[in-house]
Simulated assay, not measured.
Amino acid sequence: MSQIDRLKSKLVEFRDKRDWKQFHNPKDISQAISIESAELLEHFLWVSQEASHEVVIKNKEEISDELADIFAYLLSFSDISGIDLEEALLRKLEKNNKKYPVEKSKGHATKYDKL
């Protein structure tokens, strides 16, 4: 069993003890991911790119909590949708490797269709 599967199992156990599965559907969980992501972004609102590193240092616990919330909802979404996150990430990396070959994209933030 992978570490992701172990974490997902702990999360499902937490959810099921509270009878929350009834609230877990693709629409609501995807919205929760977006909401928690916005809460992460809120830490950096009106802060310069340079100052953003300082924000992380000063608010590490709160930012860590936001990341944990996002991760928990990602695991929940993968559980209810039957999507294997490890497999999905590896497949996406393969696609991105083709879209962004090193020789064209190294040191550039240009979108693949403009390389």
Results as ranks from 00 to 15, higher is better:
Ile70Thr: 05
Glu61Asn: 13
Ser64Thr: 13
Ala88Pro: 08
Asp84Cys: 08
Leu40Ser: 00
Leu40Thr: 03
Asp69Val: 05
Gln49Arg: 13
Val56Tyr: 14
Glu54Lys: 12
Leu45Val: 08
Ala68Ser: 11
Glu61Cys: 10
Val47Pro: 01
Gln49Pro: 09
Ser78Ala: 13
Ser48Leu: 01
Asp69Ala: 05
Phe77Asn: 01
Asp79Gln: 08
Leu45Asp: 14
Leu40Val: 04
Asn59Glu: 14
Gly82Val: 01
Phe44Arg: 00
Leu67Pro: 03
Ser78Ile: 02
Ser78Asp: 03
Leu41Cys: 15
Ser64Asp: 10
Glu87Asn: 10
Glu50Trp: 05
Ser48Val: 01
Leu41Trp: 06
Glu50Phe: 04
Asp69Pro: 04
Ile57Asp: 11
Leu75Phe: 01
Leu75Trp: 02
Lys60Asp: 13
Ala72Leu: 02
Val55Trp: 00
Glu61Arg: 15
Glu50Gln: 10
Asp65Arg: 13
Ile63Met: 06
Ser81Trp: 06
Ala88Val: 08
Phe71Glu: 05
Ala51Glu: 14
Ala72Arg: 00
Leu90Thr: 10
Leu90Pro: 03
Glu39Leu: 07
Ile80Gly: 02
Asp84Arg: 03
Leu74Arg: 05
Gly82Leu: 01
Ile83Tyr: 06
Glu87Phe: 11
Ile83Ser: 06
Leu40Trp: 03
Ser48Arg: 06
Ala72Asp: 05
Lys58Tyr: 10
His43Ile: 07
Ile80Phe: 02
Ile80Asn: 00
His53Glu: 14
Leu45Ser: 11
Val56Phe: 14
Glu39Ile: 02
Ile70Arg: 03
Ile83Phe: 12
Tyr73His: 09
Ser64Val: 09
Asp69Trp: 02
Asp69Leu: 03
Leu89Lys: 08
Asp65Pro: 07
Ile63Gly: 01
Asp69Met: 04
Tyr73Gly: 01
Asp65Gly: 14
Leu90Glu: 11
Phe44Pro: 00
Glu42Ser: 12
Ser78Val: 05
Ala68Val: 09
Leu67Gln: 07
Asp79Ala: 07
Ala88Glu: 05
Ala88Phe: 09
Asp84Pro: 11
Phe77Cys: 03
Leu45Arg: 15
Asp69Gly: 02
Ala51Ile: 05
Ile57Arg: 13
Val47Gly: 02
Glu61Trp: 11
His43Phe: 15
Glu39Asp: 10
Ala88Leu: 14
Glu66Gly: 05
Glu54Val: 12
Leu75Val: 01
Leu75Pro: 00
Lys60Arg: 14
Glu62Thr: 15
Ile57Ser: 09
Ile57Gly: 08
Glu39Arg: 05
Ile80Asp: 01
Trp46Asn: 11
Glu39Trp: 03
Glu66Thr: 07
Leu89Trp: 13
Leu45Ile: 09
Glu39Pro: 00
Val56Asp: 05
Glu62Cys: 13
Ala72Met: 10
Leu40Met: 09
Glu86Pro: 06
Lys60Met: 14
Glu66Asp: 11
